[in-house]
Amino acid sequence: MEKKINILYVDDEQINLQLFSMLFEKKFNILTALSGNEGLNILESKNDFSIVISDMKMPEMNGIEFIKKAREKYKNIRYFILTGFEITKEISEALKQKIICSYFKKPFIPIDIEKKIEEVLYNKP
């Protein structure tokens, strides 16, 4: 069997992190962080993430700001936003500049995220 890929999920709500892990732990290896800074530390300590999914609205650093910082060092990682908001200008700008591959909306349906991740990883556009 193929080795599970590593996914980092960043969200300032503990419940979201817990649920995300439970929903996807069978398919993927999930690591979580409560803030952008914590996320950057995790990326630093473990160097083989394929996917980063981040909440948008967080204290200190929002999702796009975190992803922009992470991208400076980790260009091969595929980044996503998972947000409770409708698409905002910042998100659509990030989509246009291909800073993020896609964005998901809360409440999410797990299979949608799963499909998108597989699509991005295996049928690179």
Partner: peptide, 18 residues
């Protein structure tokens, strides 16, 4: 308020699926 409502909705939906 969307964000504030969508987060708890996410708890519910995520919880149900899990």
């Amino acid at each position: 308020v969307a964000h504030e409502i969508n987060n708890p909705l996410n708890f519910i939906q995520g919880g149900v699926y899990a």
